[in-house]
């Protein structure tokens, strides 16, 4: 790399990578941090906003389920058994006459917890390891990658059953089982991104400018690597939800009558011919949650991407 070029790129990188906040802020608005700026960009993105709102709404629905749900989730109604969706029961009733809508509202509790909670664990373990590995790219990388490779080689289903068999049933153990088996994908992904990004000119530039490794990773590399990570985490949400459902089959999941979306799908899918709506609505809910999370994630990434403001 010749001196001239690197010099030029250093300047370029300084403007792009060292945050819009500086240029933008000095031009138009009073002092603004990166995150505040990102926030403004995020709410300007309508799709992301909608996604975020839906996620928040589902979360609120889970929290305030007892207030929202028109019927209790566990109380059978024998005068209204397995009814198709109608005015009284917009999503129908199940085999013991429990309102599917109410069960969906309550089901958001477990599903949000499992779906998002497991992703938090996955993120917290996977990204630091992947980042460290990809950033150093030397001996540390080799050692970490050996470890990741060993962990990675375990088929997830088998390993989750193994962990649940060892730990016993319960919601928190489901978190652990899914988290412990899921982080490896994120770690590999993060590393791959970092390997690619660290060669980029603006990183070279920032490094040459004397940015600390911590600053390099958190400010420069991570935001640029966030896209695939967010996508992967998004896919992790329904995966975790269905893993939870699968564990209930084997007898190591959560106990009835507490509903979860995954369980509702898993329990009723074989009755698709008889009662299509029993599995359909929770499946739609899972899809909605995932889609909202995707849009929100994309928006978040765009918001964090400094290049976006140049358009």
């Amino acid at each position: 790399m010749d001196v001239l070029r690197s010099h030029r790129e250093e300047r370029l990188a300084a403007t792009t990578a060292d945050r819009a906040g500086l240029t933008l802020g000095s031009l138009a608005r009073p002092h603004r941090t990166l995150w505040r700026d990102a926030w403004h960009r995020l709410i300007a993105n309508r799709l992301a906003l909608a996604g975020g709102i839906v996620v928040v709404l589902i979360a609120l629905m889970a929290i305030f389920a007892p207030l929202i749900a028109p019927y209790p989730y566990d109380k059978p109604n024998y005068s209204a058994v397995s009814q198709f969706p109608n005015r009284d029961f917009p999503m129908g009733t199940d085999l013991t006459g429990r309102d599917v809508l109410s069960r969906m509202i309550y089901g958001a509790q477990v599903s949000m917890l499992v779906g998002l909670g497991a992703q938090v664990i996955v993120f917290l373990i996977g990204v630091p390891i992947g980042a460290l590995s990809g950033y150093t790219a030397g001996k540390v990388d080799t050692i970490l990658m050996r470890f990741v490779e060993v962990m990675y080689a375990f088929p997830q289903l088998l390993f989750v059953i193994l962990i649940m068999a060892a730990l016993g049933r319960g919601l928190q153990n489901i978190f652990i089982a899914i988290g412990v088996t899921g982080w490896v994908t994120i770690a590999r992904l993060t590393r791959a991104e970092f390997l690619s990004i660290r060669e980029k000119d603006y990183i070279q530039a920032a490094r040459a400018a004397g940015a600390s490794p911590w600053r390099l990773i958190t400010r420069h590399m991570l935001p640029n690597a966030l896209t695939p990570i967010i996508v992967a985490l998004t896919f992790g949400v329904p995966e975790a939800i269905f893993t939870e459902a699968g564990l209930s089959f084997i007898g190591v999941g959560i106990n009835p009558p507490r509903p979860s979306w995954g369980q509702m799908v898993g329990e009723y899918y074989i009755y698709l011919q008889s009662y299509w709506y029993l599995a359909l609505f929770p499946a739609i809910a899972i899809a909605l949650l995932m889609m909202s999370f995707t849009f929100f994630g994309n928006g978040l990434r765009d918001a964090l991407d400094p290049r976006m403001q140049q358009r």
């Binding site: 329904p238 799908v265 698709l272 499946a283 899809a287 889609m291």
Partner: peptide
């Protein structure tokens, strides 16, 4: 694309399997 992707991931393959059997076989 978004729709297909969401469908592919949010509909687990066991539901899809039964659905396909019911629709295309029966």
């Amino acid at each position: 694309c978004s729709f297909v992707a969401t469908l592919g991931v949010a509909v687990p393959n066991f539901v899809l399997a039964i659905f396909l059997i019911v629709v295309f076989v029966l």
